[in-house]
Computed example of a mutant assay.
Amino acid sequence: MIERVVALGLPLLWSNSVLPALDLPLRGRTVANVAFAAGYTKVFCGNPNWLSRSGFRWGSGSAAIVLAGYAVALAVPSLRRLPLEVAVRAPETSTLEWIAVHIPVGTVLAEEAIFRGTLDPLLAESIGGPASAIGAVDFGLWHIHPAKAANDSIPLTILATTLAGLIFTELRRRSDSATAPALLHLAINAGGALAPAAARWVDGLRR
C-alpha cells in the first residue's frame, strides 16, 4: 500500500513542485525529466518494453490516425484557422529542436516511462480494474504546473490529459508495451507543435 501511494505521489511532487523550483532552462528540464524517469523506473521496477513489435504496431496505427486528422484540419480552411491562432509555446529554442529533442525525449519518453511503463503495471498488479482510471488521473494532475506556466485552464488541462491518459493506458494494456502510447503521444504533441507553422505555409500556398 505504501509503495503505491509513494509511486502515485512522487511524479506529482516532481512535476508540480521540485522541477519548477529548480528553475531550469528548457534543455535542463529535459535532462532533469529523463533523469527522474530513469530513477523512478529503476526504483519501482518498471518495464516499458520499448522494443515490442506489438507496441510498434499499435502505436503506428494510432499515430497514423492522429496525423491524418491533422492533415484534414490543414486542408479545410475553416479548421486551418484554429492552429493559426495558437501561440508559439517554445520560445526558448527552435521549432526543430523542440520537435526533435524536447517533445520526444523530455516529454514523451519521460512521461511514458513513468506512467505507462512503471505506474500502470504497478497499479494493475496490485488493484486490478481501477488501475487505469487512477493512473490516468495521476497523469492529468502531473500537468497542473505546466498548465499554470502556459496560462492554460488548469481544470480543462487536467480533464484533457486524464482522458488522454485513459487512451494511453489502454494502448499499453493491449500491446503490453509503453511504445504504443509513446508513439500516439508523440504524434499528438509533435503534430500540435508543427500545426501552426504548417497552417501558415498552406495559407501562403493558396494565396
Rank of each mutant, 00 (worst) to 15 (best):
D203E: 15
R116F: 08
L96Y: 05
N189C: 06
E112N: 07
T169Q: 12
A198M: 14
G9T: 09
S15Q: 12
R53T: 09
R172S: 06
A160L: 09
G61A: 11
L67P: 01
L24W: 06
G128I: 14
L141K: 11
W50T: 07
R27T: 05
A136I: 02
A7Y: 05
V18N: 01
S132W: 11
P104I: 03
I188H: 09
S52Q: 04
C45D: 14
P121K: 12
T179C: 12
S175E: 08
L67W: 14
R80Y: 05
G128K: 11
V88M: 05
G117H: 14
A136G: 06
R172C: 01
R116C: 13
V86H: 06
L119G: 09
T107K: 04
V76M: 03
A195N: 08
G128E: 13
G106Y: 03
P104S: 15
L186H: 09
E112V: 11
G39A: 15
P181W: 11
W14S: 06
I114D: 05
A180E: 03
V66G: 01
A178Q: 08
L123S: 07
G59L: 08
S17C: 14
T95H: 00
L163M: 14
I65T: 05
P104M: 09
A133D: 00
R29E: 14
A87E: 14
R29H: 05
G9D: 07
L79N: 03
P77L: 09
R207M: 02
N33H: 11
S52K: 12
P155Y: 11
M1E: 10
P77S: 02
I99T: 13
G59P: 01
R89F: 06
A32V: 10
A37P: 03
N47M: 04
A64F: 10
V5C: 08
